[in-house]
Protein backbone atom coordinates (compact mmCIF):
# COMPACT_ATOMS: atom_id res chain seq x y z
CA UNK A 1 0.00 0.00 0.00
CA UNK A 2 1.31 3.41 -0.92
CA UNK A 3 1.12 6.41 1.38
CA UNK A 4 0.06 9.79 -0.01
CA UNK A 5 2.48 11.20 -2.58
CA UNK A 6 3.36 14.21 -0.43
CA UNK A 7 4.74 11.80 2.19
CA UNK A 8 6.98 9.88 -0.20
CA UNK A 9 10.02 12.08 0.07
CA UNK A 10 9.94 12.21 3.85
CA UNK A 11 9.44 8.44 4.07
CA UNK A 12 12.24 7.62 1.64
CA UNK A 13 14.55 10.05 3.43
CA UNK A 14 14.03 7.98 6.57
CA UNK A 15 14.78 4.69 4.78
CA UNK A 16 18.23 3.17 4.38
CA UNK A 17 20.32 5.76 2.53
CA UNK A 18 22.53 3.26 0.77
CA UNK A 19 19.65 1.27 -0.70
CA UNK A 20 17.75 4.42 -1.70
CA UNK A 21 20.86 5.67 -3.50
CA UNK A 22 21.52 2.34 -5.20
CA UNK A 23 17.95 1.99 -6.43
CA UNK A 24 17.70 5.60 -7.66
CA UNK A 25 21.03 5.34 -9.45
CA UNK A 26 19.98 2.07 -11.09
CA UNK A 27 16.83 3.71 -12.44
CA UNK A 28 18.82 6.79 -13.54
CA UNK A 29 21.27 4.62 -15.42
CA UNK A 30 18.64 2.79 -17.45
CA UNK A 31 16.32 5.76 -18.07
CA UNK A 32 16.71 9.31 -19.26
CA UNK A 33 16.49 12.00 -16.61
CA UNK A 34 16.03 15.67 -17.56
CA UNK A 35 16.05 18.41 -15.00
CA UNK A 36 13.07 20.72 -15.44
CA UNK A 37 14.36 23.41 -13.11
CA UNK A 38 17.73 24.10 -11.58
CA UNK A 39 18.23 22.03 -8.42
CA UNK A 40 18.19 24.52 -5.59
CA UNK A 41 19.78 24.22 -2.22
CA UNK A 42 19.94 26.97 0.35
CA UNK A 43 18.32 28.66 3.27
CA UNK A 44 14.70 29.73 3.25
CA UNK A 45 12.55 31.52 5.77
CA UNK A 46 10.10 29.24 7.53
CA UNK A 47 6.77 30.94 8.11
CA UNK A 48 4.44 29.75 10.84
CA UNK A 49 1.26 31.04 12.43
CA UNK A 50 1.12 31.58 16.13
CA UNK A 51 -1.84 29.93 17.80
CA UNK A 52 -3.43 32.86 19.64
CA UNK A 53 -4.15 35.56 17.09
CA UNK A 54 -3.19 33.44 14.07
CA UNK A 55 -0.63 36.00 12.95
CA UNK A 56 2.15 34.87 10.63
CA UNK A 57 5.71 35.02 11.87
CA UNK A 58 9.10 33.82 10.70
CA UNK A 59 10.43 31.07 12.90
CA UNK A 60 13.85 31.32 11.32
CA UNK A 61 15.90 30.07 8.40
CA UNK A 62 15.88 26.40 7.48
CA UNK A 63 18.03 24.54 4.97
CA UNK A 64 15.98 23.51 1.97
CA UNK A 65 16.76 21.54 -1.17
CA UNK A 66 14.43 20.88 -4.06
CA UNK A 67 14.63 19.10 -7.39
CA UNK A 68 12.16 18.92 -10.27
CA UNK A 69 12.81 16.50 -13.12
CA UNK A 70 11.32 14.32 -15.84
CA UNK A 71 12.03 10.61 -16.05
CA UNK A 72 11.73 8.91 -19.44
CA UNK A 73 11.90 5.13 -19.29
CA UNK A 74 10.80 2.55 -21.90
CA UNK A 75 7.80 1.72 -19.71
CA UNK A 76 6.62 5.25 -19.17
CA UNK A 77 7.30 8.94 -18.62
CA UNK A 78 6.65 10.95 -15.48
CA UNK A 79 7.62 14.15 -13.77
CA UNK A 80 9.02 13.81 -10.32
CA UNK A 81 10.02 16.18 -7.61
CA UNK A 82 11.20 16.39 -4.06
CA UNK A 83 11.68 19.19 -1.59
CA UNK A 84 13.22 18.46 1.74
CA UNK A 85 14.48 20.28 4.80
CA UNK A 86 18.02 19.25 4.02
CA UNK A 87 21.19 20.52 2.39
CA UNK A 88 21.91 17.17 0.75
CA UNK A 89 21.12 17.83 -2.89
CA UNK A 90 22.30 14.38 -3.96
CA UNK A 91 19.74 12.75 -1.69
CA UNK A 92 16.93 15.03 -2.80
CA UNK A 93 17.76 14.39 -6.46
CA UNK A 94 17.51 10.64 -5.83
CA UNK A 95 14.19 11.09 -4.04
CA UNK A 96 12.88 13.00 -7.06
CA UNK A 97 13.94 10.15 -9.35
CA UNK A 98 12.15 7.60 -7.16
CA UNK A 99 9.12 9.90 -7.01
CA UNK A 100 8.92 9.94 -10.81
CA UNK A 101 9.58 6.20 -11.05
CA UNK A 102 6.73 5.44 -8.71
CA UNK A 103 4.34 7.76 -10.57
CA UNK A 104 5.34 6.08 -13.84
CA UNK A 105 4.83 2.66 -12.25
CA UNK A 106 8.16 1.37 -13.46
CA UNK A 107 9.03 -2.28 -12.75
CA UNK A 108 11.07 -1.03 -9.78
CA UNK A 109 7.89 0.24 -8.08
CA UNK A 110 7.63 -2.71 -5.65
CA UNK A 111 11.21 -2.07 -4.50
CA UNK A 112 10.40 1.61 -3.96
CA UNK A 113 7.26 0.63 -2.08
CA UNK A 114 9.31 -1.60 0.16
CA UNK A 115 11.63 1.29 0.94
CA UNK A 116 8.60 3.51 1.52
CA UNK A 117 7.20 1.04 4.04
CA UNK A 118 10.55 0.80 5.77
CA UNK A 119 10.81 4.61 5.91
CA UNK A 120 7.25 5.02 7.17
CA UNK A 121 7.95 2.52 9.94
CA UNK A 122 11.15 4.28 10.90
CA UNK A 123 9.35 7.61 10.97
CA UNK A 124 6.49 6.22 13.01
CA UNK A 125 8.99 4.84 15.51
CA UNK A 126 10.82 8.17 15.76
CA UNK A 127 7.53 10.02 16.18
CA UNK A 128 6.37 7.63 18.86
CA UNK A 129 9.64 8.06 20.73
CA UNK A 130 9.37 11.83 20.46
CA UNK A 131 5.75 11.81 21.57
CA UNK A 132 6.75 9.74 24.58
CA UNK A 133 9.53 12.08 25.65
CA UNK A 134 7.28 15.08 25.03
CA UNK A 135 4.55 13.43 27.06
CA UNK A 136 6.79 13.41 30.12
CA UNK A 137 7.11 17.19 29.92
CA UNK A 138 3.35 17.78 29.77
CA UNK A 139 1.89 19.68 32.68
CA UNK A 140 -1.79 19.92 33.63
CA UNK A 141 -2.70 23.34 34.87
CA UNK A 142 -5.64 23.63 37.11
CA UNK A 143 -7.10 27.10 36.85
CA UNK A 144 -8.27 28.87 40.00
CA UNK A 145 -11.52 29.78 38.30
CA UNK A 146 -12.30 26.10 37.73
CA UNK A 147 -12.29 25.37 41.47
CA UNK A 148 -15.06 27.84 42.08
CA UNK A 149 -17.42 26.13 39.70
Amino acid sequence: MRPNREDWAAALAAADKGRVAALADRIRDRAQVDLLAPPREGLMLMQLRESVAGAAFHLGEIPMARVHLRLTAPEGVAEGGAALMSDDLALVTRLAILDAALVADLPEAPEIEALLAEGMAARAETQARRALSLDRTKVDFQLLSEEDE
Binding site: A24, R28, L35, P38, P39, L89, A90, T93, R94, I97
Partner: peptide, 8 residues
Protein backbone atom coordinates in the same frame (compact mmCIF):
# COMPACT_ATOMS: atom_id res chain seq x y z
CA UNK B 1 26.84 17.45 -8.84
CA UNK B 2 27.18 13.76 -8.69
CA UNK B 3 23.69 12.35 -9.28
CA UNK B 4 22.71 14.34 -12.38
CA UNK B 5 24.72 16.59 -14.63
CA UNK B 6 23.36 20.05 -15.30
CA UNK B 7 23.85 21.67 -18.71
CA UNK B 8 26.95 23.84 -18.47
Amino acid sequence: MSVLDLPR
